[in-house]
Amino acid sequence: MAHLAVSDVRASYGALEVLKGISFSIEKGEIAALVGPSGSGKSTVLRALMGLTPITGGEVDIAGETMNYSSAREVRAARDRMAIVFQQYNLFQNMTVMQNLTLAPLKIKNWDKAEVASEARRLLSLVGLADKADAFSDQLSGGQQQRVALARALALKPQILLLDEVTSALDPELVNEVLDAIRKLADEGMTMVIVSHEMAFVREVADKVAFMDAGQIVETGTPAELFDAPKTDRARDFFSKILRH
């Protein structure tokens, strides 16, 4: 039984269909990567899974349960099982790092206060920011903010973690600190769906890759299969352009 199974999912912005039937599945502990050119719908897949972009068709199964995204209650249930990290971090600007991490666990999940606090501190040390608990996000660098965002997502104890181009907004020298934090999660067996332009990183951590173009998954396979021997012309064209440098 797949941990996350997406079949024929569709989404539109007005008349423009941005997801034209997306299907993929991942097992528990697996890491799937969505790659492809800008505007191909990679981020929209993650947004649709989080109920931020309405799904107009298809089916999503999470841990064997079919979620009906037209029901607000089931969207809440889906969000309860997943967490997303955004490209622009989106930390709450009016809160400290600690408050960012503990808000939802305390107010939404109603978990024990002491446990939430100690878990938040553990996660901050995991991402190497134990000393930044009382900082506001505008006092942190982009890489630090993104690591806080990662810790905030983990504080929700998600069954599946969605990472939306988490290094794209960062200065090159800050990319590695975020990737290192994600590597640790991969080692811990976290199930993840990653949208990324860091092909070397995808090759290293991903179990499977899906190449997307124009709202569709064009080709899937292991990183080696897709990067080294793409079968479709579109994928060959894309990878020949980006892997050359």
Binding site: G51, L52, N90, F92
Partner: peptide, 25 residues
């Protein structure tokens, strides 16, 4: 709007999002 989306993704209700995230900012 990205602040609102981050809150929504955590299942904060519209009222909670407004009171805790949007209004203070």
């Amino acid at each position: 709007q990205t602040q609102v989306e981050a809150a929504q993704a955590m299942n904060l209700s519209r009222l909670q999002t407004n009171l805790r995230i949007v209004l203070p900012q």
